[in-house]
Simulated assay, not measured.
Amino acid sequence: MLLSRVAERAYWAGRYLERVQSTARLISIYDKLLFDLPRSIKLSWYNLVSINKLDHAFNEHYSKPDERNVMRFLINDRNNPSSMVSSIQAARENVRTTRDVFPSDVWYLINELNHYIIDNANQGITRKQRHDFLNTVIRGCQQILGVLHSDMPHDESWCFFRLGKNLERADTTSRNIDAAVAAILEIEDMDEAINSRQIIWLNLLRSLNADHYFRRAVRASINGADVVDYLICNKDFPKSVTRCLSNLVHTCSLLPKSDDITQELTDIQNSITAEYHSDLKGQPLRDYVNELQLRIINMHQKIYANWFPAWD
């Protein structure tokens, strides 16, 4: 039987490692999006703060929501628990305190990535070296995940790690959709809005590394309804909300004390699917995504209450 504190740390290692990669990918794609859009369209870097619901934390320490401050906040600010530096250090600490359940190579790799991010964080703040810095971080995260998948026994520790990873992925996908819809609403009255919408939807797919697989599955020109439908409902793409939540429910079913929570999470998953309609767009779509994020938080709370009550 796995100790509750070990299970919890494996869970958070999965969440924080996924968060490092998703933050790096989101910054990289947003950078490319601003480059691709017409010069007359000025999207704010502050959108990256808002979609993560970090407005209060940002405004406590920064007076100006410009690119440099947003980059510093998302990459190198230790006061922000979701920054890349904070997340990689939290992932490292969770692995360090449970080293006996993780492959030894993962401990070395996560140390290397931790030192790289801390030592080179300033490269991500300025544009000149940002691309190389973010790509190195993404590759580092993928290398660690690859070693975990190939070398870690698929026991209870793996299941809790997988719970954290999939919950974080579902949350990331929902927030990226919200960011795209917010950007489209911001430019909807501009003359360039029609062409710019397609650019935004394409970059949304790229932010999740989904553009290639979307084209294979849909075989049609990119439009908002198809993109959102794919990222929420597709059963095969690893980062779609439906696939992440299906993985979550299945993983729960493999763990002890799981009958009640598996049914509860299944009910939440079914409600998310039932309430989604492909004709949702604009503010109603943002309202749906906001409710989706609340349901994901509810899933997290149920996981905590079921398996980590002494540490809540």
Rank of each mutant, 00 (worst) to 15 (best):
residue 280 L to R: 05
residue 23 T to S: 01
residue 33 L to M: 10
residue 105 D to I: 09
residue 224 G to H: 06
residue 71 M to W: 04
residue 120 N to K: 11
residue 291 E to P: 02
residue 278 S to L: 09
residue 130 R to E: 09
residue 91 A to Q: 03
residue 78 R to T: 10
residue 261 I to P: 05
residue 55 D to F: 10
residue 128 K to S: 12
residue 156 E to W: 10
residue 278 S to E: 12
residue 193 A to H: 11
residue 25 R to I: 06
residue 230 Y to A: 05
residue 284 P to T: 08
residue 45 W to A: 04
residue 88 I to H: 03
residue 159 C to V: 14
residue 127 R to E: 13
residue 153 P to R: 07
residue 165 K to P: 06
residue 87 S to K: 04
residue 193 A to Y: 11
residue 268 I to S: 04
residue 35 F to V: 14
residue 97 T to Y: 14
residue 293 Q to S: 04
residue 62 Y to V: 05
residue 88 I to V: 15
residue 220 A to Y: 04
residue 188 E to N: 10
residue 123 Q to A: 06
residue 149 H to Q: 08
residue 199 I to L: 11
residue 259 D to T: 12
residue 91 A to R: 03
residue 157 S to W: 04
residue 198 Q to W: 07
residue 151 D to I: 10
residue 149 H to A: 15
residue 304 Y to M: 15
residue 155 D to E: 10
residue 127 R to F: 13
residue 280 L to C: 07
residue 81 P to S: 07
residue 27 I to L: 13
residue 301 Q to V: 09
residue 158 W to C: 05
residue 234 N to L: 00
residue 225 A to Q: 10
residue 286 R to C: 10
residue 262 T to L: 04
residue 231 L to C: 06
residue 65 P to N: 11
residue 159 C to H: 10
residue 45 W to R: 01
residue 158 W to H: 11
residue 224 G to I: 09
residue 187 I to H: 08
residue 188 E to R: 15
residue 100 D to S: 13
residue 6 V to P: 02
residue 61 H to P: 06
residue 139 R to E: 15
residue 204 L to R: 10
residue 311 W to S: 15
residue 311 W to K: 15
residue 79 N to K: 10
residue 267 D to N: 14
residue 149 H to N: 13
residue 181 V to P: 03
residue 105 D to C: 13
residue 160 F to E: 03
residue 234 N to R: 02
residue 207 S to R: 02
residue 214 F to G: 04
residue 3 L to S: 12
residue 126 T to P: 00
residue 296 I to K: 03
residue 180 A to L: 09
residue 102 F to H: 09
residue 191 D to N: 11
residue 34 L to A: 00
residue 276 Y to L: 12
residue 201 W to T: 11
residue 198 Q to V: 13
residue 215 R to V: 07
residue 20 V to K: 03
residue 267 D to I: 15
residue 138 I to A: 03
residue 153 P to W: 01
residue 6 V to T: 14
residue 33 L to A: 05
residue 37 L to E: 13
residue 113 L to K: 03
residue 6 V to N: 01
residue 176 N to C: 09
residue 249 V to W: 02
residue 257 K to C: 07
residue 99 R to Q: 15
residue 99 R to M: 12
residue 22 S to V: 07
residue 26 L to R: 07
residue 207 S to F: 00
residue 54 L to Y: 08
residue 193 A to P: 08
residue 95 V to F: 00
residue 155 D to W: 07
residue 69 N to I: 05
residue 288 Y to G: 08
residue 175 R to Q: 04
residue 248 L to R: 01
